[in-house]
Amino acid sequence: MNIVSKTPDVPRVNGGVLLFRSCLVSAEYPGSEAATKWLFDRFDIEYTVHPEQTCCTGLGYYSELVPVATSVALAARNACVAVEDGHPTMSYMCSTCYAINKKARNILSVDSYRADTNKVLAKVGREYTDAVADQIQHSHTMEILWSAHESIPGLIQRRLDGIKVATHPACHYCKVFPDEVMGDAENFMIPEDLLEDTGVIKTGLYNEKTTHCGAGFRQRFVNPGIAVAVTREKLRRLAQEKVDVCVHMCPNCAIQFDRHHSIIEASAQERYPFVHLHVQQLLALALGADPDKDCGLGSHSQDVEPLLERIGARTPAVTR
């Protein structure tokens, strides 16, 4: 029997958010961002996308190209941008952006590191002050959406009855700050809980749920054998659970699964009959979004058409 934890209710996010754009989301799955914005509009969550926001440096940092001080400095700068703009709540679509920025917040609470960082920031006319530190909030987009989940039942236009979904919990959300996870860090449920009202079958805890996607940033390239072996193990476990959709909350995980799924099936001579979507995409589809225009499903490597047919997303949405 699987354990299905329930994410606690939280107050609705106060005021607007700064939607922190992600390199991987923009380059690989722009539909994830489009679906997020589409949902924010439906949920009346005011948001901004700021032209001065920079990369979090995650890719460079984890490939040992960017030193930590640089990552911290850019995080401090981005925090200043958000606070100056009046949107001190950051909403991250990528769990690495979330972890890098949140970790930087902790580093910046040490006076000497903050002083060093501020020396650099002074060159661009900014300062990571106590006021910035007090105001800045680092939230994963899952958390922002969950804070508005009570709106969902009234907005459903395509029921997902009978669709079994499983969460792939992103490591950089669940494991970097396990005590700050919304809900159960060892059985993260927001993605499934967000979809609950649409009629999906939730999987809850399953074998290897907390195992990572295999990507490991540069490991994907320097040790592809190990990376793919981990991905395959996870795909096998998800297939054993007979899921229809594995929902993701991080573009890097989605790349590892969506781009490698068919390749692993072919090389392992196994079949994993399910697809990978970002939670935002599946939720938006249930609420009536257009699969192409609003969810950008064309950028996926897997064939998602059978699923779209099954949930009636290839015919115009109607209230049921």
């Binding site: 029997m1 699987n2 354990i3 159960d184 060892e186 059985n187 805890l205 749920k209 907390t210």
Partner: peptide, 11 residues
Amino acid sequence: ARRKRSLGYGR
């Protein structure tokens, strides 16, 4: 022991 999710107790 259910609180230690990875050990599978209760599942």
